[in-house]
């Protein structure tokens, strides 16, 4: 009752976490990574990214992430040149493999950066994707 009274929480039982507005509204990738708790991430080749070299349509770019870093507990996706670089942050638990496959929007050619957390540390890997037609309508 107390929580609902604040108006900040939704009544959804399992959707308990508060949306990280600070991270999702950050306008550069360094701030977005810091605000999503991936600040100071070390480059790691153990994060495998499957992304096209060229995306004809930025409205729907396939991305597949596999982390080979033991103990990976979360995966976040950033598009450096989007107005708000943070795309999504996935927390994994109870047997979920460190793997995510989805489709993202890219406003223009950009570095796509993935960050993961493992053992309390952050790691990152990036790949440039050339976009022929932008997908954020901006």
């Amino acid at each position: 009752m107390v929580a609902i009274g604040t108006g900040l929480l939704r009544s959804g039982e399992v959707l308990a976490a508060t949306w990280n507005k600070l991270a999702f509204t950050s306008t550069n990738v360094a701030d977005a990574m810091k605000n999503a708790n991936y600040g100071g991430a070390a480059e790691s080749k153990d994060i495998q990214l499957k992304l096209p070299d060229i995306a004809e349509n930025g409205a729907s770019v396939p991305i597949e992430v596999t982390s080979h870093i033991p103990g990976t507990t979360s995966i976040a996706i950033f598009v450096e040149k989007n107005q708000n670089p943070l795309v999504a942050d996935f927390e994994l638990s109870n047997g979920a493999e460190p793997y995510i496959n989805t489709f993202i929007k890219m406003s223009q050619t950009s570095q796509v950066r993935v960050a993961v957390k493992a053992g309390g540390k952050a790691y990152t890997q990036g790949k440039e994707v050339k976009v022929t037609i932008g997908g954020c309508g901006g």
Binding site: V87, D89, G135
Partner: peptide
């Protein structure tokens, strides 16, 4: 819970 995700506007 196996996956708990937050999304912004740039999921297709």
């Amino acid at each position: 819970t196996v996956l708990d995700a937050q999304w912004g506007v740039a999921i297709a």
